[in-house]
Simulated scan of single mutants.
Amino acid sequence: MNVSRIKKPFLVAIASALLLTVLPHGSAHAEPSLRTRAEIAYFTDIDGIWLHRLGGDFTPEAAQTGTFYDSRYIPVKDLFGGQVEAIRWNSAAKTVSIANEGRTAILNFSGKKIAAKENEIVLPATWSKMEDGKALIDLYTLTYVLDRYGDAFDDAERADWGEKLDFLGIQYAETLPVIRSSDVQIYVTFEDK
C-alpha cells in the first residue's frame, strides 16, 4: 500500500497553507493565482479525474459510476447539462452562457475583454478553453472554489468566487484521491430542483 497517497490530501493542504503564509507580499513576488492555488490544494501530480454528479435528477447508479476525464478541462455540458436553465453558445460574441436562477456565468472565448452586464459574471479566461468545438471548464478551479470544506483554505478570493457562483445550482464539491492511482474522484452535488 502506498502510504504517501493516503497522506497526500493532508500534506497538500498543509503545504498550501504554508505556501500562502510564507510567500513575501509586494511587487517583488506575486502570490499564486487562484487557479494555481487550486492545483496546489489537491491536484498536484494528478493524471485523471473521475467526475461523479449527485443530487438533482441523478440516479444513484449514475452517480456511483462517474465519468473519466484525462484533463482538468471537462465539457461544460457534461457538468451542467440538465442542471441549469440553459447553456448557450453565442457565435458572434464567441461566448458560452450558463444561465440559472436569473443570472448568467459567461465563458469568453473571443480573446477580448468583455464587460459583464447586470446579473452576469464573466469567468477568468484561464478557467475555460475551446477544444474540438466543445466549451470546456477547468474543474480543478471550480472544485476548489465550491469545495465543501473550502473555508479551511482561508482564501478570500476563493470565498468571493464561491459567493458569485452560488446560482449555478452546485451545493458543494468534494475531492478524494484514488488509492493506488494518480487519479482523483470529484463529487459535485447539485441542489434538488
Results as ranks from 00 to 15, higher is better:
residue 9 P to I: 02
residue 37 R to Y: 04
residue 111 G to W: 04
residue 28 A to Q: 08
residue 7 K to G: 13
residue 168 L to A: 05
residue 178 V to Q: 06
residue 164 K to F: 10
residue 73 Y to C: 05
residue 144 Y to L: 02
residue 117 K to E: 08
residue 33 S to F: 00
residue 167 F to N: 08
residue 156 A to G: 14
residue 138 D to Q: 14
residue 149 Y to C: 02
residue 20 L to P: 01
residue 170 I to A: 10
residue 189 T to L: 12
residue 42 Y to G: 12
residue 39 E to G: 07
residue 30 A to L: 12
residue 168 L to K: 06
residue 124 P to K: 15
residue 75 P to I: 14
residue 184 V to Q: 01
residue 167 F to Y: 08
residue 127 W to F: 12
residue 123 L to M: 15
residue 108 N to Y: 08
residue 156 A to V: 11
residue 38 A to N: 00
residue 181 S to L: 01
residue 181 S to K: 03
residue 22 V to K: 05
residue 67 T to W: 08
residue 192 D to Y: 06
residue 143 T to R: 03
residue 119 N to K: 14
residue 75 P to Y: 13
residue 175 T to W: 04
residue 102 G to N: 06
residue 156 A to K: 15
residue 124 P to T: 14
residue 5 R to N: 15
residue 75 P to T: 15
residue 57 D to Q: 12
residue 93 A to V: 06
residue 47 D to R: 06
residue 99 A to Q: 09
residue 101 E to L: 05
residue 171 Q to L: 13
residue 134 K to P: 02
residue 188 V to A: 13
residue 10 F to Y: 11
residue 33 S to E: 04
residue 68 F to Y: 11
residue 127 W to T: 01
residue 156 A to L: 14
residue 152 A to V: 13
residue 19 L to C: 02
residue 5 R to V: 10
residue 142 L to H: 14
residue 20 L to H: 03
residue 134 K to T: 09
residue 132 D to I: 02
residue 51 L to M: 08
residue 166 D to M: 14
residue 86 A to I: 02
residue 104 T to Q: 09
residue 175 T to I: 07
residue 96 V to Y: 07
residue 134 K to W: 07
residue 189 T to K: 15
residue 30 A to T: 06
residue 112 K to Y: 03
residue 120 E to Q: 13
residue 34 L to P: 01
residue 104 T to V: 06
residue 96 V to M: 11
residue 38 A to W: 02
residue 45 D to T: 03
residue 69 Y to A: 13
residue 3 V to L: 15
residue 14 I to G: 00
residue 183 D to W: 12
residue 33 S to L: 04
residue 67 T to H: 11
residue 49 I to P: 01
residue 1 M to A: 14
residue 3 V to A: 03
residue 74 I to Y: 11
residue 109 F to Y: 13
residue 24 P to A: 07
residue 163 E to S: 10
residue 35 R to W: 03
residue 57 D to P: 03
residue 10 F to Q: 09
residue 17 A to G: 10
residue 90 N to T: 07
residue 81 G to V: 04
residue 45 D to F: 00
residue 109 F to V: 05
residue 180 R to W: 05
residue 113 K to P: 05
residue 101 E to F: 04
residue 158 R to G: 09
residue 41 A to E: 10
residue 114 I to V: 14
residue 140 Y to F: 15
residue 118 E to H: 07
residue 98 I to H: 04
residue 2 N to V: 09
residue 140 Y to P: 02
residue 122 V to F: 13
residue 63 A to R: 02
